[in-house]
């Protein structure tokens, strides 16, 4: 079945309810700063509000904002004895599509047959060339676009939790909204921002179809789903070379892309001096060249350019 409505496209859904004791495992993947941990907490609390058992935990690497992070939520109608990382999720929520071919994140790793992959993306089904490689059911939606529209910031904890809640098929809108309110107030978010997050949560919850995964407990043996997208691992040559960080390609962190209008640029060099990541070099005419493979989109250059020769554009996908 393919259904296209507004931003959301659902491909090949099969709906089965699980007949055995339920243990639903949801894994969130995003980047530091997206609100990954909060997303997993909201989902857990929403399930708890439904009278279910829930458990959630995040995992961070040693890196900073922008680096891949994951969080886990387990939901069950019985006490949950399993602990630790989730290697065999029923649902994965990919909060940043560029993580799909990041070797250090591998978000689809271990997704159970019959499980659901949710991907936050602006792409439509034609552009979506991961479609064939994700063998499982895929739900896509532009959470970042909606978050920018409603709360003005690319923080997507609430809409990711809303998407996951709806996909499970066992969480009601009111349980979700209660969870959003209490989790966000707990971390000190102001009332006006919570209001907007509620609008955002409702919008996502209503737009995304209920698509419970058809996995069963008996399927829960760990299986790796081969990813056909090209993941480039660093090789020996890369590892021993000096200053090899451009291979990390932090360009995927961007939400907005700075674009130089060379007809207005006066070659003053301000953007070059203030780029914290040395992602700008000066050409022989003194005008900047941005390394889009690695520009993180901090937008200092955009803010500081004296003649305002730099504009910004929403980044869709770097690779």
């Amino acid at each position: 079945m393919i259904e296209i409505s507004g931003h959301n496209i659902i491909i090949a859904l099969t709906i089965h309810y699980v007949d055995e004791p339920m243990l639903l495992k949801v894994r969130f993947h995003g980047r530091g700063g997206h609100g990954v941990k909060t997303a997993s907490r909201i989902l857990g609390e929403a399930a708890f509000n439904e009278g279910l058992y829930a458990q959630d935990s995040p995992i961070y690497g040693a890196e900073r904002r922008g680096a891949p992070v994951a969080a886990f939520t387990r939901i069950s109608d019985e006490e949950i004895l399993e602990r630790g990382f989730i290697f065999d999720p029923d649902i994965v929520v990919v909060m940043d599509e560029t993580l799909l071919n990041d070797w250090s994140a591998k978000p689809l790793d271990g997704l159970k047959p019959g499980g659901i992959a949710f991907v936050n993306t602006t792409a439509n089904s034609q552009l979506y060339d991961y479609g064939e490689t994700i063998r499982e059911n895929l739900v896509i939606y532009d959470l970042t676009g909606l978050a920018l529209k409603i709360i003005g910031k690319p923080i997507i904890s609430t809409p990711s939790a809303a998407a996951a809640s709806k996909i499970t098929g066992i969480i009601s809108e009111s349980s979700l909204i209660d969870a959003v309110t209490s989790e966000l107030s707990e971390i000190g978010v102001g009332d006006d921002v919570i209001e907007n997050n509620i609008i955002l949560a409702r919008e996502v919850f209503r737009s995304i179809p209920e698509t419970p995964p058809s996995t069963k407990l008996s399927d829960s043996k760990r299986e790796l789903i081969p990813l056909e997208v090209v993941i480039s691992y660093p090789g020996y040559e890369d590892i021993v070379s000096v200053g090899n960080s451009p291979l990390r390609k932090t360009g995927n962190w961007r939400v907005f892309k700075p674009i130089v209008d060379f007809s207005r640029c006066t070659a003053c060099g301000v953007c070059f001096v203030y780029c914290p990541d040395a992602a700008i070099t000066l050409r022989s005419d003194g005008k900047p060249e941005i390394d889009y493979d690695n520009c993180k989109g901090c937008l200092i250059c955009y803010r500081e350019c004296p003649p305002r020769a730099i504009s910004i554009e929403r980044e869709v996908r770097v690779w």
Binding site: G33, E63, R64, R65, G66, A67, G243, N244, S245, P246, L247, R248, K249, T250, W253, C268, G269, V270, F272, V273, Y274, C275, P276, D277, A278, A279, T281, L282, D291, D293, N294, C295, K296, G297, C298, L299, I300
Partner: peptide
């Protein structure tokens, strides 16, 4: 500012936050 040396010894792609003043 134009006298800022052109050569960079920091390479792009560090894992620090976007806009980190310390790294700058």
């Amino acid at each position: 500012l134009r006298d800022t040396p052109l050569e960079d010894y920091l390479t792009p792609g560090s894992p620090l936050c976007a806009g980190c003043g310390g790294q700058l």
